[in-house]
Design a protein around this nucleic acid. Structure first.
Length: 312
DNA sequence: ATGATTTGACCACA
DNA sequence: TGTGGTCAAATCAT
C-alpha cells in the first residue's frame, strides 16, 4: 500500500491539473462565438475534469481513509471533523438548556451551530419534518430528521435557516449524533448562492448517477438532470427557470436523497445563468472561512479540511 | 404503491 | 401564554 503522503501528493497533482483544465474551460466559455468543434472540445474538457475528481477521490480514499473503511467501529462523523468542517462554527454547546419547547427533546443531545454560505449535503439522508416561522426572523426555519430515525433509531436532527443579516448565509444547527449505519454515501458538496437574485455556481459531488435536486430551494433557478443523461457534459445541463415570487414558496434547503446508489463521485453541475459565477481558475463558491472553499484549496493545497476529512 | 414534503395542531418549556 | 420543536394527516412526486 502506498503511503498516505505520496497519495496526498498525487491527489494534489490531480486537483492542480483539474484547476488548469478548468481554467481552460473557463476561457473557452468566455469566447463570444463558438463553432461546433469548440463545443466538442468543451465536452472533452468537462470529461477530463470529472475524471480528475474521480481520480482524486480514489487516491484519497485508498490512503487516509483506509483505516476508517477498514474499521467499521469507527465513525468519522462522530469525530471532531463532523460536522464542524462544513462551515464557520460560531458556537458549540452541549446540553444547551436555552432552547425551549423541544417536543420530546433529548436532554443529552449535543448541538452544533454552523454558519455557511454554501449548502452541503453532509452525506446523510435527511427528511424534512417541519417548517416554522420564527419570531423576529424574516426567514422560516426548516427542520430535518435522519431518514433512519425509525429504522435505526438515529436521533440526529438538523435545522436550517437563512440568516437575516446575511441573507446569503445559512445557519445550520445539528442536534445529536448519527447512530445510523448509513455510511455508504460519499458526501455531496453543494455550493450555491442562496440569494435568488444572486449570481451563483452550484457544484455537487454525489455518489449518485441521479442528481436529485428537484427539491432544491424552489426560489432558485436550478438545473434538472435526468438520470440517463448522467452528467458527462455541460451540454446536458438544462436550466429551469423558477418563479422568483419566493413569498409563496418558502425556502427549502438542499437535502440529500434518502436512497442513493453507490457510484463513484462523478457528478458536477454548474449554474451559469448569472454573470459573476466563475472567475479564472476559481470555482466561485462563497463558502465562509474554511478551507473547503475550492479556490482556497487549490491555492493553499490545504486539503485536509476539505470534504475528505469526513468522507465515510 | 411507496416514499417524501407540507402544514396545521399539539406539546414542553420559560 | 408565547414560542419553538415535533407529530401526523393530507398532499405531492416518482
Amino acid at each position: 500500500m502506498e503511503s498516505s503522503s505520496s497519495n496526498r501528493i498525487k491527489a494534489i497533482q490531480e486537483l492542480t491539473n483539474g484547476q488548469i483544465v478548468t481554467n481552460k474551460l473557463h476561457a473557452m466559455l468566455g469566447r463570444p462565438e463558438k463553432i461546433e468543434s469548440d463545443l466538442k472540445l468543451e465536452n472533452g474538457v468537462v470529461v477530463q475534469i470529472l475524471r480528475m475528481f474521480d481520480n482524486t477521490r480514489s487516491i484519497l480514499r485508498s490512503s487516509n481513509l483506509n483505516e476508517i473503511l477498514h474499521n467499521p467501529t469507527s465513525d468519522v462523523r462522530s469525530s471532531s471533523s463532523w460536522p464542524e468542517d462544513f462551515g464557520e462554527s460560531i458556537e458549540v454547546t452541549k446540553n444547551e438548556k436555552t432552547k425551549k419547547g423541544c417536543y420530546k427533546r433529548r436532554k443529552d443531545a449535543s448541538t452544533i451551530v454552523k454558519v455557511t454560505s454554501a449548502l452541503f449535503d453532509d452525506g446523510y439522508a435527511w427528511r424534512k419534518y417541519g417548517q416554522k416561522v420564527i419570531l423576529n426572523s424574516k426567514h422560516q426555519r426548516n427542520y430535518y430528521r435522519c431518514t433512519y430515525k425509525f429504522e435505526q433509531g438515529c436521533q440526529a436532527t438538523k435545522q436550517i435557516q437563512k440568516i437575516d443579516d446575511e441573507p446569503s448565509k445559512y445557519k445550520i444547527t445539528y442536534c445529536g449524533r448519527h447512530s445510523c449505519n448509513n455510511l455508504q454515501r460519499a458526501p455531496q458538496m453543494i455550493m450555491e448562492s442562496p440569494n435568488p437574485g444572486d449570481s451563483s455556481i452550484l457544484i455537487s459531488f454525489k455518489t449518485s448517477t441521479h442528481f436529485e435536486n428537484d427539491k432544491v430551494d424552489t426560489c432558485f433557478p436550478l438545473i434538472k438532470h435526468t438520470p440517463k443523461e448522467g452528467f458527462s457534459s455541460l451540454g446536458h445541463l438544462k436550466h429551469e427557470e423558477v418563479s422568483s415570487s419566493n413569498h409563496h414558496t418558502p425556502w427549502d434547503p438542499i437535502i440529500g436523497p434518502s436512497q442513493v446508489p453507490q457510484e463513484p463521485m462523478s457528478m458536477m453541475s454548474y449554474r451559469l445563468d448569472h454573470e459573476d459565477i466563475v472567475s479564472p481558475g476559481v470555482f466561485s463558491s462563497t463558502c465562509s472561512t474554511h478551507n473547503y472553499e475550492i479556490n482556497d484549496m487549490t491555492k493553499n493545497h490545504d486539503y485536509d479540511d476539505f470534504l475528505f476529512s469526513w468522507y465515510p
